[in-house]
Nucleic acid binder design. Structure first.
Lengths: 327, 327
DNA sequence: TTGAAAGCGGTACCAT
DNA sequence: ATGGTACCGCTTTCAA
């Protein structure tokens, strides 16, 4: 059996309380005592049980991180950053993959609620009121989703769209398609809205296609719709769709970017690996993951609602393969 | 505050023990009692605290899943499968990313040991004896790594290499390069060994290059080394290296596969997206993740060491872009 | 079948 | 500065 605080106390010849103090608040015990405790701890290889501590403090030292799909290349960057930051805070991360299913997501959150100090919810699929309800029970930070005044961190999608459309307009495109992602996606609604608004401002015509699933197959499926819309450029809900478009375009004999230019969102790793490389709107995932944990940690520490409970992170267009029409 | 078992007991007019039983072993309480408890549970929205339960049972209902780098496209597939399977068992998953650092890995394992019922270690980077030591404290399943008799699940790397080399030999290649991954990687050693053995058997000449880091940049760096070795085909430690090779080859004006054919390992998503698509040795990641959790669960349940504590999963070559030399 | 009570491994308050 | 002790929420004997 692993050593308990009792064993340490006995070996050190002090009380449990002193051991607990020596470890948690070293300056509340006499150096001599501290020494003896430390020695005993070392000899026994003692590690306090986080779970026992959790029971008595109400703090688990663990946060829940929920993502819709860890295999979606958009998320690992965020997860990694969050994970790293958490470790700096001495927090463990309970990762849950909801498989893109709102019901699973809610169930997972409910199950984990007792085991974590708070949640970072990445692009949660659950309905607003469900999220609000969760927020009542436990600190929560939303990533890539905004629900009322709940603490959340999003990317500046509207500005990303603006950069993308301005780029295409500058290249001479007059008519572009937007391939929509899932209807249920908050981000998709944001981008779609921005596309309409910005296009109008820029005097561009927009053809909306989709929605399609936000993956390679979705892009493949959307390709023919896009072609039928006779546009010279297309903005895809995300890079995977963009990649799917490219693939299908190649099969249909449509050259990219000569015939159609493509701009994606997310700057997933694969976007840089294909040729021509995919122009995309990048989002600072590291910053997002880190900031999410920072914010959650603040909430947990109850440093009463930090000023910036709602952050919007800048996006930036990475121009790669895209060119003007009739090139 | 969330309701506790006490609240339920009071509301139901029974003792804590009865509530506990009604929930854990319903057939040990009279139906009438069970009813009252269930009603109270529902009314209060009671959810037992896993952490309190853990303290008293010694079971946390959580397993630790450690990966070297969740952003490495090889792992999400495994993680996802493991996650899903765990949920079926009612287990939560504590995911830790060791950032490819053996020290971090060990530290993370030690920290989490008290909070989980067991570990699934994906391609652990820690030294053998460290792993053995961990195994003494708590059930552990190794994925993609073999250490003595420890429970582990690996892919049949030797056979994967055999398929790859047989493929290249059949295409007419006589001299191939192997681009090595990290020296510390057990899998790399396996593959390197197999390359030597199989090549000898097939009468192929082998040029070993590297080691390089197992990512895109590593492949880029390796490209020039490979070219200097004047081979017509190359087997890369993994797909990311293969992709890096392709990229650099393009810049150096070397055509793939006309001048050099490439075979990677892992079948990461991006391998199918590039053109020409990358020929690769695929490994059943889902099966691996699932089997890992199954095995660990058995170990935890202490169904004394299941027969197959050491599994080897079949790999299979996916032929895509590769062709013969002087094509 | 049910209830009382003793832990599980810590923390924290209260004395000393 | 230190020790004693009452919890934290649940499970699990042990009696009744």
């Amino acid at each position: 059996m692993a050593a308990t605080i009792k064993d340490v106390a006995r070996l050190a010849g002090v009380s449990q309380s002193s051991v607990s103090r020596a470890l948690a608040t070293p300056d509340q015990v006499r150096p001599a005592t501290r020494e003896r405790v430390e020695r005993a701890v070392a000899r026994l290889g003692y590690r306090p049980s986080g779970i026992a501590r959790g029971l008595s403090t109400g703090r688990t030292g663990t946060i829940g991180l929920v993502v819709p799909d860890i295999a979606n290349p958009f998320f690992p960057g965020i997860v990694k950053a969050a994970q790293r930051r958490s470790r700096e805070f001495g927090l463990a991360v309970l990762l849950a993959d909801s498989d893109e299913d709102p019901a699973t997501e809610v169930e997972v959150i409910r199950t984990l609620t007792k085991q974590v100090d708070g949640f970072v919810l990445c692009a949660p699929r659950a309905p607003d009121d469900e999220l609000r309800s969760v927020c009542g029970d436990i600190p929560v930070v939303l990533l890539n989703r905004r629900v009322g005044p709940l603490p959340s961190i999003i990317f500046d999608n509207a500005d990303g769209v603006r950069q993308a459309l301005a780029h295409l307009a500058a290249l001479g495109h007059r008519r572009v398609a937007y391939v929509a992602g899932p209807r249920a996606s908050w981000v998709n609604r944001e981008r779609a809205r921005a596309v309409r608004a910005v296009a109008a401002a820029l005097g561009l015509e927009v053809a909306e296609t989709g929605p399609v699933s936000p993956d390679f197959e979705g892009g493949v499926a959307a390709a023919d719709l896009v072609l039928a819309a006779s546009v010279t450029a297309v903005i895809a809900y995300n890079d995977m769709i963009g990649l799917g478009l490219m693939s299908r375009f190649a099969i249909r004999g449509v050259r990219v970017p000569a015939d159609v230019s493509i701009v994606g969102f997310d700057d997933i790793p694969a976007a840089a690996l294909v040729s021509p490389a995919l122009t995309t709107v990048a989002q600072p995932k590291d910053q997002c993951g880190r900031a999410g944990v920072d914010l959650l940690n603040d909430l947990i520490e109850d440093r009463d609602r930090p000023a910036a409970a709602r952050l919007s992170l800048p996006t930036r267009l990475i121009v790669r393969g895209s060119t003007g029409p009739e090139h």
